[in-house]
Amino acid sequence: MQALSKILPSLSNLQRLHLWRAGLTEQTLTSLKSTVSLCLNLRTVVLEGNPLPEQAFHILIAEDSPLTHLSLRNNCIGERGAHLIGAALSTARVANRSLLYLNLAFNSIGDVGAKHIAQGLRLNRTLLCLSLAYNRIGDAGAAYLAEVLGPFALTHDEIVERRRQMGKWNSLPSQTQIADSKNESWLSIASSSSLEPSMSNTTRSSTRKKDMPKKEENQTASEGNLTPGRKEETKLTGKGPDTKLARGKGVKPAAKEKNLSVFKQEVADQGSRLTHTDKTVIPVSKVAETSEPEIPVLETEVQYREGKVIVLGNDVLTSLNLSGNRLTEQSLSSFLSSVSQQPAGGGLLRLSLSRNCFQEDCDIFLKLQELMTLRDPLSKTVPGDEEHEQAV
């Protein structure tokens, strides 16, 4: 691993690393994680047949991990490893934003491990493909996985974290005003307050005052009636121009302070409107832009129903493989209910349920299969293909 740590970062074209039954240990896995972060174009890592006592594979799914494809098949991952992987996928505060494909087939995740993986899918909006084939998952674990695909209620801890983060957003306008009041840079913020017209009028009037002699001078020269000096003197000494210039000199101090206070209040009201509203749907992720990492619990739209905060569900995951587990018709009903509530053209597009504990000719499976066939874009045949297939 020390040799690889020196060689791999120098391979600028390296995109895939496959270590099958390489005898990894906790120490070499940590070294591998550091090496992967140094490889510019390495995005796929396959670690199969490398069981570890501590099951610390989650370090490859950290928030700052550059990997997009990770395969951890046949690594004896149990409940502990599934718990660590689920927490790495997402929590109420942090989430992985790079991993697109995760293969956990042929492990020992079980129902409890499936619950942890489902917990990680609640607020993860990056992962597209997940394989949990041959993991001894029954109806209890499948119910948690099906729940996150449809609308579900936030837990108490998630609601508390959401309110805490929203409180930080609410304090942003007042903090911005205090910080920017020293240099008055907040005046550049776009707003529809009454200060903006007065400021623009003052600027235009002062500009008009400077440019007026030149404009009149050009007019006089073109007309030839008066000399430039006389025309300019007439304009500067007349009552009309003097009145206009007096009006354009600016706003009175009292009125200006009033306008400034109105502007500040509108900025604060705008921030509160973005975070607090009577609407059922609140896209809090659009509240403001900041250099801090985005909070997963604030990125999803929510609805309020019967005193509960309802999330619309994970509609980013497109492929889920649960083949070779212990699912019965009860799990089929849960998936059918959740998938049918997902928006058309999005959400789960492929669901693999072969080799489970139900008859493939049962009504509920046929309904689910028909629904998934309509959703899967790869299963749609071109007109005329059916006749061609029959002929073949």
Rank of each mutant, 00 (worst) to 15 (best):
F263Q: 14
L226I: 09
A254T: 12
R204A: 14
E217W: 01
A221Q: 11
G240T: 12
A246Y: 04
P213E: 03
R204D: 03
A254P: 00
D211H: 08
E223H: 11
P228S: 05
E216A: 06
S206A: 11
E217H: 04
V251H: 02
K256W: 15
N225V: 10
T227K: 10
K244V: 15
T243F: 04
Q219P: 02
S222E: 11
D242H: 04
K252C: 06
T220Y: 03
T227Q: 08
K244Y: 05
V251Y: 03
K235H: 05
N218L: 02
R230H: 08
K214V: 07
L236N: 13
P241A: 06
T220F: 01
S205G: 11
V251W: 00
K264A: 12
G224T: 10
S261C: 03
K209A: 14
S222W: 01
E233D: 08
K239A: 13
E233H: 11
G238F: 00
K239L: 13
Q265V: 03
K209W: 02
Q219R: 15
A246R: 12
E257V: 08
E216W: 04
L245H: 11
K256E: 08
K252I: 01
L226M: 12
P213R: 14
K209V: 02
K249S: 12
A254Y: 03
T227G: 14
T207A: 12
S205C: 12
Q219Y: 04
G248R: 11
G238D: 14
K210H: 06
L226K: 13
G229I: 10
K239P: 00
D242G: 11
K244P: 00
G229H: 08
K235P: 02
T237R: 09
P228N: 03
K235C: 07
K209S: 11
S205N: 11
E233I: 09
F263Y: 15
L245K: 11
K210M: 07
R208C: 05
T227A: 10
K239G: 04
N259W: 10
A246P: 02
R230N: 02
K252Q: 06
E216P: 01
A221H: 05
Q265T: 12
T207F: 03
K264F: 02
D242T: 10
L226Q: 10
L236D: 09
K214P: 00
N225R: 12
R208F: 09
R204L: 13
P253K: 14
G248V: 05
E217C: 06
S206R: 15
T203R: 14
G240P: 00
F263M: 13
K214N: 09
A254Q: 10
P213N: 06
G240M: 04
G250C: 07
K244G: 00
T234Y: 07
K209Q: 13
E233R: 13
K264H: 03
K214A: 12
T220S: 14
S205Y: 07
N225Q: 10
P213W: 00
K256Q: 10
M212S: 12
P253T: 11
Q219F: 05
A246H: 06
V251A: 13
G248P: 07
Q265F: 01
E223N: 13
L260E: 13
